[in-house]
Design a binder for these strands. Structure first.
Lengths: 324, 324
DNA sequence: TTGTAGGCGTTATCAC
DNA sequence: GTGATAACGCCTACAA
């Protein structure tokens, strides 16, 4: 910038004002500075800017979970990529950290780290929300559950789930079980409530089995379902991975899908359209949700007022004839 | 750090030497500084460090491709996550950018941007390697094709592919076609050569059809294969996505897998184990490869001397009895 | 071995 | 409207 200022015949201060657009600058000076900057190929140093502004240079995506294995989840990778895309224009990178269920050590470290520009919480628990250091205030957004001080950005999982379950019921299923999310994760409650609402509206009783976001959990849950309610004719899972596990376990148990048992999931992951039969699920804009959370954490935009929509995607696993 | 130094009764310079481990410090002074740092919860500011060192704060993952859609590829997301994991301890974030096939504009911008600590190239072309600005020298690593000035980190796709194709041949297949990678991507040549080597060793002629890393390309390629060589009894694809597409297209064409036609892919993606029949493929340590590239770009480690290994994973799509 | 002083590139606060 | 000047937090000659 020294060079730019000299080339334009002004001081560094004026040059700075011209490139940032902040503060008073005469039109002629501004034009000369901008021209010089372009000619010299000047690019402002994000570091120095962040240093003086005290804002940090990276957007941290912190994922709650019982083990660091959650960091390998494809969904988490999508969120990270979306966060990186939001930060890129401003020269901000994205980081990925695991947040143990009961530990504010990581959170404290993040709060002290001056390199942290913003924090996006994934799989947010009340414990995390409660342990959030005050220094982070205003720079945090949560995908899912929010709180008084933390903006929550989320999908209308309740309606999305209810719509999928209603499809199961409309196609004649009467014994519909659900593989729920882990008990420690509050935002999966809404999906569960959507299921319960739909099932009760049809005059049926909910059949809940605990699970999580893994294929293995879906397999195990289905074995539990079949043992407890052998007549089950439909299984809905809190996300696609356990639904795919359910598909496998049902097949292993000799049940035909969708003839004997229908299966549905949630998220419309890449694999949902590839398996045979295709997995009925609900889609929602993962990248958009993550980007909105990232922008909110960075103070680039206010938290969206409404929930992002979730719409059913009907495929063969529930007997639908629509292509996958 | 001011506080830490004062608490330890030394100057800022000594405190700095103690925390960085660089330069001469007496043991007693070092211990006092470290103790004080811990007590005060001191965390060095990565920004200020990078500013004075001129090293940047983010690790950029640049992905070559005909369109920005490559940024949504699950494989790219895995690479980004691995890069983020490598940078995290040093307070470095990761960024994701698209590199058009024929454009050094992006590369030039990256070279000027002082926030860039290192660059990891994915889907590297010779054009990109040739257009690499000298200012980036020593801070770049490529996953796949490298060059004189750019460290290449890669998988032994040749042997991995050959091993999978040999499995096809060993199980009696005689008309084995391959869906190759895009012509502009040099590193997929090695996979193709592995296929050709295996096929020729069996006294057969190669049957090549161009494709890319998408499901749709696999579907289209299979239609071309069946039109040209109706007797085809096996299809190997350059990666899992086109292999899964091949699976679908074969089924749509009324061919049974694996009875009529065997199918194999490469990468061992998440979906490979979930489809029915399971997709035979070759696995390799994507995260390790990406982490090695990231470390190399950051100067944290020299480029690995040998190729990372790729080993076949046999599943039902080639008639293997091993579980998927 | 230690302290002092200078600088990394930028923005913000003042006088002018 | 403009130009010095002081930060931001850290590292590193250089001198002691």
């Amino acid at each position: 910038m020294e060079h730019v200022a000299r080339a334009a015949g002004v001081s560094r201060a004026t040059a700075s004002r011209a490139v940032t657009g902040q503060g008073p600058v005469s039109a002629s000076a501004r034009d000369r500075v901008l021209a010089a900057a372009r000619a010299l190929g000047y690019v402002p140093d994000p570091l120095a800017r962040a240093l003086v502004a005290g804002t940090g240079t990276r957007l941290v995506v912190a994922v709650g979970g019982t083990s660091a294995a959650v960091l390998h989840d494809p969904y988490v990778a999508r969120v990270l990529a979306a966060a990186a895309a939001v930060g890129e224009p401003a020269g901000l990178g994205a980081s990925l950290v695991h947040l143990p269920l009961a530990g504010s050590r990581v959170l404290d470290g993040l709060a002290r780290d001056r390199g942290v520009a913003g924090l996006v919480l994934v799989n947010t628990t009340h414990a995390v929300l409660g342990a959030l250091p005050p220094r982070l205030a205003g720079r945090v957004a949560s995908i899912g559950t929010g709180s008084a001080g933390v903006a929550g950005v989320d999908v209308d999982t309740g309606s999305g789930t209810a719509a999928v379950v209603e499809h199961l019921l409309a196609s004649g299923r009467r014994q519909v079980a659900m593989v729920t999310g882990p008990a420690w994760l509050p935002c999966t409650r809404r999906a569960q409530q959507g299921y319960e609402r739909a099932v009760r509206a049809a005059g049926l009783a909910p059949r809940l089995v605990p699970g999580d976001f893994t294929v293995a959990a879906g397999e195990e849950a289905v074995r539990a379902v079949l043992a407890r309610w052998p007549g089950t004719d439909a299984v809905h899972a809190v996300s696609d991975a356990p639904a795919l596990g359910a598909l496998r376990a049902l097949r292993a148990a000799g049940r035909r899908v969708p003839d004997d048992v229908a299966v549905s999931g949630f998220d419309d992951s890449a694999a949902a359209g590839l398996v045979e039969p295709g997995l009925t699920t609900a889609t929602h804009p993962v990248e958009e949700v993550a980007a909105a959370a990232a922008r909110t954490a960075l103070g680039l935009a206010p938290a969206p007022g409404a929930l992002f929509p979730s719409v059913p995607v009907l495929r063969g696993s529930t007997g639908a004839r629509l292509a996958g």
